[in-house]
Design a protein around this nucleic acid. Structure first.
Lengths: 165, 165
DNA sequence: GGTGAAAAGTTTCGGCG
DNA sequence: CGCCGAAACTTTTCACC
């Protein structure tokens, strides 16, 4: 029983890559990556197994790319965050900078951007001198110049996308 | 039996805010936010209940701030990412910009930064015209000027911190 | 998509080092 | 004080409708 009575078969407006109810699952998990399948089922009006099946499919399709704990970097000895914009020294250089920098684990993210510079990196380090070391490694590894913007504080971060209606 | 034989009572080098084994738990969860307590126990050599106890303590202390699913924004209809640097129009303005912008759910993060501008925002929108709308809302809500850098592609993002040894 | 039972997971508890 | 091991409970998986 359970009075779910949703019944709707397969319909739903697939306004973008993902169907309505899938979008809801994705946004719920974005807000709480450990939400149980039971709660997900309650929120969506589907059965637990139906939700489970959808989550697996979303993971397989790459819509759900993984799960992460959000951590306080101060507490794990990496209290200094910075954005590092990079520009190739040789403008003709093949742009494999991301691959050449991947080994530097202090780099949390790498975005290719429009504008004066080629990439924006977000980095996490222990101290100003660790940042200096890192910048030298970045310049040496990718033959680039760097421009660094130090983060003073982070009012908010990793906010999930707005919940689907 | 299980040959664990750790035995060490309370020792361990607390090189920063968090103890050695706690750091390991945190970095493991940062890399896989849904890792089970059973697996965490295997990786750390602790029992399941000991790990559970530590995770709860880390959550309470705020070292583990939450959990999130990593999602493909293209697939949920938000394919356009940008960095928006903002600067107050009135340099004497009280800096409550983060609070004044919090209601804009397209803003994923807000960092206070050193340098020419005051804050760097990361935003996710559906289209260039949605970006235009958002920028107008940002300017109106916080009385700031904006400088926008559009993200073309993201070679990598949300990489976890290097695993503790 | 749904169901129900088996397998695996999590949480709590009393006792040990 | 923190860790262990086992019981009680919940979640997740699997075969079938």
């Amino acid at each position: 029983m359970t009075t779910s009575g949703s019944g709707s078969g397969h319909g739903g407006g697939t306004v973008c890559g993902v169907e309505e109810i899938d979008r809801r699952i994705v946004t719920l998990l974005a807000a709480d990556g450990r939400m149980s399948f039971t709660d997900l089922a309650k929120e969506t009006g589907l059965s637990v197994s139906a939700v489970h099946q959808r989550v697996r499919r979303l993971e397989k399709r790459g819509v759900l790319r993984g799960y992460a704990a959000l951590i306080d970097y101060d507490e794990i000895g990496l209290p200094l965050t910075a954005f590092v914009s990079i520009k190739p020294i040789d403008p003709a250089a093949a742009d494999d900078a991301p691959d050449r920098l991947r080994h530097l684990t202090a780099i949390e993210s790498c975005h290719s951007v429009a504008g004066d510079e080629s990439y924006i990196l977000k980095v996490r380090v222990a101290s100003p001198s660790a940042l200096e070391d890192l910048l030298n490694q970045i310049r040496a590894s990718a033959n680039v110049s760097t421009r660094t913007t130090v983060v003073l504080s982070t009012p908010y971060d990793y906010r999930p996308p707005a919940i689907a209606p």
